[in-house]
């Protein structure tokens, strides 16, 4: 099952400079574990020592914030796009 994962500039050091990579998993947690084998270190930048999503990281599945879809338990399907972005203020 292929899921496209869009990587922000700051994390491309873990993907050999790639803007997007492919991964697999039924949930976001599975996907991040899966990604970490091909791109070691990426997962540790997104997940805190306590096991939750880093406060200043936003992750979206098909443009919707995963924190409202079950966070790390958010369900993923083949063909989904996951976007990772640093938190930015507006106003």
């Amino acid at each position: 099952m292929a899921i496209e994962v869009r990587i922000p500039t700051i994390l491309r050091q873990y993907t050999g400079g790639a803007k997007a990579v492919e991964g697999a998993g039924d949930t976001l947690a599975d996907l991040l574990t899966n990604l970490d084998t091909a791109h070691p270190g990426l997962r540790a930048r997104l997940i805190t020592a306590e096991g939750g999503l880093h406060r200043f990281v936003n992750v979206y599945v098909n443009d919707e914030d995963v924190r409202f879809l079950g966070a790390l338990d958010a369900k993923l399907d083949d063909g989904d796009t996951v976007t990772i972005l640093p938190a930015v203020a507006g106003g």
Partner: peptide, 11 residues
């Protein structure tokens, strides 16, 4: 977003 550091984000 440039090289915005994830550890220095803002909510």
């Amino acid at each position: 977003y440039g090289l915005r550091n994830i550890d220095e984000g803002y909510v």
